[in-house]
Structures are given as structure tokens and as C-alpha cells.
Design a binder for these strands. Structure first.
Lengths: 341, 341
DNA sequence: TCGGCAAAGTAGAACGTTCTACCAAGATTG
DNA sequence: CAATCTTGGTAGAACGTTCTACTTTGCCGA
């Protein structure tokens, strides 16, 4: 009323006074509760407009003991896979009142628990996490038990009883291998990735499946193993070339490895796509920019993020729903790095 | 005390009772206030450990009318430039109690004000924003006037009186052009980007500077203009090739454009790096993966994020500091797309 | 001895919502 | 016509901190 004291922020109480109702009523209007008659609602809404009221979620959070924020713990936002996954999460949160707290844990359990603690302090209504590789299932289960709706993404914790959404790594490995076999390749390398990585284990399993199905025998020498960096990928592909019976094609542990491997080939004067087939696994948009454009098995990072967010939102509504395991089917995207064209 | 009622969360009051002090004291301990004697502090801290107390920031936010969250509004997280910038922000927030609310506004003013409103409701202690291109300076100034520490990044709002950190686009344009001139090129195209974009205007200004300095004359026909998508970049480079007096080199409006342009060249049987020089502007890690590896002018997205976060943190501490304008100096990164190898 | 001051701690009212009871007044029913 | 139900609303106590303004105690100097 007094236009001379615009210092205090306008609260639900100011609205109530101005609209001639109680604060409770304003609160109910805010929550779109149908308990309130149309005319009262209208009146309150008008006042809200007029006074430029801003909802204070901190107060609501305190009172309701929850928060409209979702924690999103990933490895590294510069990795396009995670960037796309993050975009997927955002796409579903977009239309809601939820916001995301993004944090990177860099595949470090120590840091992961630190950032989780911080998320907890700030208050989150749910959590989507790509767990660090050394994560113990109890860590995730303790979070779930604590009442925080949680969805684990991409990296399946062995036996943790929580919601999960991720790719079918085995099928992806199989599809990639199958594609190369269909193109007539008999000696196919698998480049990079760390031996203990569950993703790699599954992809290799798929690779072996496809080999076996085609009556080709598995040669361990063709499976190079290393941290999946660009530098290692270059080394690995060259090691493969140096074998007594060298491969004519290779699967990259991921797109990055595959792209770097193409560089490695050229350093040896081998032209990828023409003299050697390369296929990646990931399907990030980077693959399209490579030259030759990378044939790859898309894991649908965006959809993983989307589904994970949907799952968390559902669990927020119904905390005791039975846990879901969502496995997304990969897709082969044929471009030119395997010579088809 | 009663171990049979573990349902309620443990609060500062429980700690106080257990440690035989008042809640005020516990609060002071939490804030590391030196008002409290060493032994009392120790006692309280022990109890905190023992009971597994978790600080409730929502309550603190409500009381203090602020929040330890920083809003980060960007265009699109899948763009490596923004991903790197985000990582830069995280790198400084890392050691603090701040967390970031990440939101994408997709260069849409409408959406931008919606997400800002949402950030406001959730409560933020500061804001870093890459403003949508149609953003009015008043929008930013109103935020600052409202008391929210704000730092604008990358895209300079004309005359808005706020903190800003961004690249020197003009110098970047000059450096790119200069490099090509030094390599002996006389006809240099500038590919893509929208005419009204301030970044492009500045980069073109730098391009003209360098041309003039070298005694070369500016030919508007060599400046192609379009939304900087991959498809447009391919079209633009081909248009350039079709000119009566075609260029022998080109500057991409950004790295993405440059990489796509290389594809465009190859579609015409022109080998980038050997028969035509291409240089980008951005310096995201993608450039390294391209083939040939892209020579580019690095704008240091990571550092922009880092500085922006530092500026916001400083302004949170000292709200009335004079506004700063931080301009980061670009760097030429020579790889092989201009033939120098 | 007394006034003053520093050190260490405390009381208690906020902060802005939500939500469980509760209430008043019509409408409906037997 | 009394009993019950429905509709539309309200009172007021939380939620867990923070922070201003005390209080208490001991010490010091005059």
C-alpha cells in the first residue's frame, strides 16, 4: 500500500492483506488447489500480478522438507556424450518447476561423495548420477534409502537396487562388429578402453557374439586395451597395424577413440574409409564432423538423459514404485568411415 | 538421545542439546566464528560428527535472504564452447560452497526471461549469463539493480552497466586474417555468421584491419553471411569457390563453420589444407580432432567461465565494487588446415 | 572498591511458506 | 426440523537457520 517502502520483498502475506483473504488462501491459489472459488482465485492472481510477487522456494523447501532441484552428477561436461545427456535431462525439466544442479565428479569417488554431500545440503528433490567407476553399490543404495529419488545413468552399478537407464553395450558391440563383418571384414580390432570397465566388457562380449555367429574366431591380440584417450587410440591402432596378421577394420571403444584412430592410420599412410574401416560407438554429433564422417553405433545420450529425468520425476511422485531398468536400444548410423559409399 | 526415534532429521537444536550449548553457539561454530572458544568448538564439532548432522541450506537461505547457488544461463550445452565455459565456472566453484543451476535458454529472449524467473524463485546468490541475442540491456541492468550479482559472458550487451568477461573478437579476426596473409594468401573469404551478430561484426572488423594493414583491399563479395550451421557453411564455402575471382583461403566464423567448410571443399574435390587454407575461431577441443587438424584462434572458453565465476564471487562479497570489463586475449593455434605442417 | 571492558555465550524473534485442524454457512436428507 | 454433508475458507504452528541485542563472568586499571 505504502509505495514509499518498496524495500521488503513482497510475500504471500502482503498478497493476502491486499486481496482481503488469508495467507493460507494465497498459498492454495499458488498451488492451484481447487478448494478455492474461481472469483477468489482471480482476485488473488490479480493482486499477485499487480504487486509483482515472487514465489520464495527456499521458504517452501524448508517447510516441505524437499526441493524442486534435481542433482545431476556427471563425469565431465566437455565430453559430448554427457553434454547431450544433460541436454536430455533439461528437455524434460524444461516444462516443470525443477532446475538442475549440475556437478562434475570426474570419475573420482572421493569427489563424488563430496559433491553429493553438497547437493544434500543445498537440498535436492532427486538425483541423476553417472557413478564414478569405483562407486560401491552401497553408496547408491544409501542415497535411495535416505529417501532421495535416484536414477543411475549409463554405468550400471553391479546389483544396486535403484532405477537405472543406460545403453545396451553388448548389443552395441555386436552391431558394430556385425556391420564390419557384413562388409566382408574378417580381422577386426577392438581399440582401447580399460579392461575392468563394465562398458568395455559388455561391448567386447557383443563383439565376440558377432564373431562367433559369423564363424570367425576371436583373437585376443586384436583387442587393445588402454585408457580411452586420443593419444592411446593413436598408439593402439598402430599396434594393431603392426601385428603379423593385421586387421582390416577396427571398432573404437567410443567415437573419440575411433576418430583419433583415423589420425593414427593416416600417420602410417593408411587412408581410413578406403584402406581401413573404422566404426565408433557413441553417436555424438562429433562423429558427423569427422573426416571421413564416422560410421557409429548411436547410444542415444540425449534419450538416456530424458528417460532418467522422467524416471526421477515419477519416483518423486511415487517414491515406492518398483525399481525400473531401462535399456535403450542402440542404432547403427552408417556414414563413410567404413568405406560404404 | 532416544535412539528409537531416528525419523526426524538432526538439527542444530539437537546438536546444541547434546553438546550442552545453545543453538546460537552451534550456528556460530558452523560459521567458524572465532567468538567461540576452542574447547566449546571442539565439543560441538564432535557432536556434529557423532550425530551425523547435515546442514540445511534452505533454512539458512530463507533466513539470510540469499543463496549459495549460482545461476548459469547459456545457449546450448552441446556446443563445446559453452561446455568448456561451464567447466571453467565449475572449476572455481569447486572449492566453495556454491553450486550451479545450469539452464539453457537457446538464444530465445522469451525463454531467457522464463528461466531467469525460475532461477529467481529458487534463489540464486549470483548469475552468469550468455545473453540471448535480442536481449535488451535493461533486462540485465534490472537484474543487477535488483541486487543480484551478475556477470555477462561472451556476448557484450551494448552499454549495459554490468560486469562482463569475453573474448576480443576484433583481435581474433585480425589474428586469423594475419596468419593467412603471412602464408601468402591475397584472396581470403569470411564464411558464415549473421550480419547483425556483434561477434561477427567485430571479427569482420579485425579481418578488415588486417587486410588494410597488408595493403589488401576488402571485397564484400568474399564475406558470406548466413546462420552459422554446418549446412550453411558448406553452401557458403562453395559459393566462395564459384566467385569469378575465388579465394584461396577462408576464415570460418567459428570452428564448427570451418570444419563444415572443409567438408564443403572436399565435395568440390578441393583438399583442405593442401589446396585451400581454412582457419577457425573458437579453439574448442573439437578443432584438434578434425582432419586436417584445424588451425584456429582460441578464445579460451574455459578461462571466460573461470573469470566470470571469479567476478561473480567477488561481487557477492563486495556488491558495490565498480563494474569490470575483462577482455581475454585470443591465441593462434597453428595446426595443419592452412597447409603449414 | 568500583567502573568499564573484553570474552564467551544465549534468548528469541525473524525469514516465507505449508498444512493440519478447525469453522461457518448453506445444501441435502431422512 | 434436526442431523449431516459440502463448500470455501482460516488460524497458527511448524520447518531450521541466523543475527541482534542482551547477559554473565572475569579482569584491569585507577
Amino acid at each position: 500500500m505504502n509505495e514509499l517502502t518498496p524495500l521488503r520483498r513482497v510475500t504471500i502475506i502482503d498478497i493476502a492483506r491486499e486481496a482481503g483473504v488469508s495467507p493460507s488462501t494465497v498459498s492454495l491459489v499458488l498451488q492451484k488447489n481447487e478448494r478455492i472459488s474461481a472469483e477468489t482465485r482471480q482476485r488473488v492472481e490479480d493482486v499477485i500480478q499487480r504487486l509483482g510477487y515472487k514465489y520464495n522456494r527456499s521458504a517452501a523447501n524448508l517447510r516441505r522438507q524437499t526441493s524442486q532441484a534435481i542433482g545431476l552428477i556427471i563425469n565431465d561436461i566437455c565430453n559430448p556424450f554427457f553434454a547431450e545427456m544433460t541436454a536430455g535431462v533439461q528437455s524434460v525439466l524444461q516444462g516443470t518447476d525443477f532446475l538442475v544442479f549440475l556437478v562434475e565428479a570426474g570419475d573420482d569417488v572421493e569427489r563424488q561423495s563430496r559433491v553429493y554431500r553438497s547437493l544434500e545440503e543445498h537440498g535436492i528433490g532427486g538425483l541423476i548420477i553417472f557413478p564414478a567407476s569405483e562407486t560401491k553399490p552401497e553408496f547408491l543404495e544409501r542415497i535411495a534409502a535416505g529417501g532421495t529419488p535416484i536414477c543411475v545413468a549409463v554405468r550400471r552399478p553391479p546389483d544396486a537396487d535403484v532405477d537405472y537407464v543406460g545403453p545396451d553395450n553388448r548389443l552395441a558391440g555386436r552391431m558394430a562388429t556385425r556391420h564390419l563383418i557384413d562388409l566382408g571384414h574378417k580381422r577386426i580390432a577392438f581399440l582401447s578402453g580399460e579392461a575392468h570397465s563394465p562398458a568395455r566388457i559388455d561391448r567386447i562380449a557383443g563383439y565376440r557374439d558377432a564373431l562367433q555367429r559369423a564363424g570367425l574366431k576371436f583373437d585376443p591380440a586384436l583387442c587393445l586395451e588402454s585408457r580411452p584417450t586420443r593419444a592411446n587410440a593413436i598408439i593402439d591402432v598402430q599396434k594393431a597395424l603392426d601385428l603379423k596378421d593385421p586387421p582390416t577394420a577396427a571398432i573404437g571403444y567410443n567415437d573419440n577413440v575411433a576418430i583419433a584412430a583415423m589420425h593414427g592410420l593416416r600417420l602410417r599412410g593408411v587412408e581410413p574409409g578406403r584402406q581401413f574401416a573404422i566404426i565408433g560407438i557413441d553417436g555424438t554429433s562429433d562423429a558427423e564432423l569427422a573426416h571421413p564422417a564416422l560410421t557409429t553405433v548411436a547410444l542415444h545420450a540425449h534419450d538416456i538423459g530424458r528417460r532418467a529425468a522422467e524416471l526421477v520425476l515419477e519416483r518423486i511422485k511415487a517414491p515406492s514404485r518398483v525399481h525400473e531398468n531401462v535399456i535403450l536400444r542402440p542404432n547403427l548410423i552408417v556414414r563413410s568411415s567404413c568405406g560404404s559409399r
